[in-house]
Design a protein around this nucleic acid. Sequence first.
DNA 1: CTGAAAGCGCTTACAG
DNA 2: CTGAAAGCGCTTACAG
Lengths: 339, 339
Amino acid sequence: MKKKQTLRDIARLAGVSHTTVSRVLNKDIRVKPQTAKRVLAVVEEQQYRLHGLARRFARGRSNLIGLLVSDIKNPFYAELARGIEDQAKKLGYMVIICSTDDRVDALSHHAETVIEAGVDGLILASVTLEDPTAHKLASEAFPLVMVNRRLKAEIGSYVVIDNRQGACLLTYHLIQNGYRDIAIITGPDDMSTAVERLEGYRQAMEENQIALKAYSIQHVNFSRQEGFKAAMKILAGKSCPEAIFGCNDYIALGVMDAARVLKLNVPGDLAVVGFDDTEFARSVRLTTVSQRQYKMGDLAVQILVQSIEKKQEHLGRRIVLEPELIIRESSQPKAKPRG
Amino acid sequence: MKKKQTLRDIARLAGVSHTTVSRVLNKDIRVKPQTAKRVLAVVEEQQYRLHGLARRFARGRSNLIGLLVSDIKNPFYAELARGIEDQAKKLGYMVIICSTDDRVDALSHHAETVIEAGVDGLILASVTLEDPTAHKLASEAFPLVMVNRRLKAEIGSYVVIDNRQGACLLTYHLIQNGYRDIAIITGPDDMSTAVERLEGYRQAMEENQIALKAYSIQHVNFSRQEGFKAAMKILAGKSCPEAIFGCNDYIALGVMDAARVLKLNVPGDLAVVGFDDTEFARSVRLTTVSQRQYKMGDLAVQILVQSIEKKQEHLGRRIVLEPELIIRESSQPKAKPRG
DNA sequence: CTGAAAGCGCTTACAG
DNA sequence: CTGAAAGCGCTTACAG
């Protein structure tokens, strides 16, 4: 590997100053077209490539965005990441990805690592309600936007959907399809999504004057396995619900696993709904609500880049998207009792 | 936001030179413990954070790895990415992700963009057999490892599984379960995975002396929709196969979609197998082969970092992992013909 | 154990 | 339109 060439080498070969080469490469207008052409020819011939690190350092901007998610393997976050990546590219940024596994203690460490990598701003997709890291960064006015989940306090910028309304829609949908005894398996109570979805469910049940049972509300982690375990427990009881609302698609998938093990047909014996509209939901015909994660990512980047590039309006932009109900077979209208 | 502090500010406050501060922060041993303690105290108090970009620039290394995949939304790549991310973190690197949508013309452009972002090396997860970009980078001795797919020529480093053997295992499995008329829907013939899996299928069919039919081999893109369309075409014919081997889980999912539309039971009327063992396969009980994508990613990073950090052994490391057959309901033994 | 100095490869006022 | 010079904030021989 021949030693990497610098701007100066190119300048020498083209018979100009390195300043001029820099200008040409940065498409600065103030260069005689002729000169530019000559320089470009040398660049082409030498296969010269600007040293990215040096450029970013000199400019004082990395054009890198950090994305912290629970787990990129989770298709919800993967879709979000894709939305972020595409919009970032459009705006001239690349994204560094970092999975935190939702460990609160690790978040701060991961955030530091990503910041030290030199990102200009951060997108946090998995904050908890009282997240100290998010609070700290916001207070330092570090460019930051939360997405998917938000803080309890109205601090910083975020892009979320109306989770309460989404859950309300789903619950109403089940009720209208003839289900009344509906249980919910929601997530940890330090996550805004879990809390708000539970609120939506409660509201719908209340407005329809359906009393909750002892088993009606369960808290678990947002995972398939935990959804499975919780569903097994609920369904093992003497009296058991007609429908289960899993607060994300993973939990709902776990509920369907449980149904299969217990030889219950979905939706014949048990209706199931989820939340997020990941591709899983499509593959198992699950009724769910779309968070429009691609769109959320897209918007998050736009806001973040605004806050990176013009420090002025650092007031926090807050966007709440409308949820979208996606109806599939898993919640078909309840069959009339036979006979 | 108060102006960012530098090493010199900390040095002044601690009454030492900025060199010493640098040493302390880099855990250089040659510093009196007392001095180190004093410096650390100031750092802590001022909440000082090294300027990552400057450090990387001075060191001449970014500790950034670029990952080019077809699409991070695809769970196969998401799992691969997670394997890469975790191992990268262990070795002190972060990863920049870039989806290319398998557009060959765009790959070169994406690769340039990522390289200009300052990565020390590149992992290419989606090369085509004659990929010009991969050839070019390999010839420049740019640190590079391919994963999942490889070039036709034995150039550069890679980590793949034995796709031929994997396909062979799957086909044998179907045959042993009583299926003989087996069709394959494979991917584009410029991708090593598609080609090698087709070879494995052919081999198994040949070894069992099963003649191929006109519809037996189909080429499509690796997508659910294309799998669906191809399956609809095959299954619409007068004579149609007893089993379909979709060359990745997406294609197999498309086949299952077609079966649902045509009211065919899986596996009662049609056995289906896939490839990759993404979580989708689990969610629809699909028999498949695991590529152990997490492991592949893990290994790819190890090799890449070796080639980044000690330029010597730039000979190209080639790793071929064993495939693992994962048997699920979608390929259960064929029922004896009734009556 | 510590510091002064050079240098990493660009960008960007400033002067002409 | 072009160039000489300063500077971005670190690291790392080198000298002591």
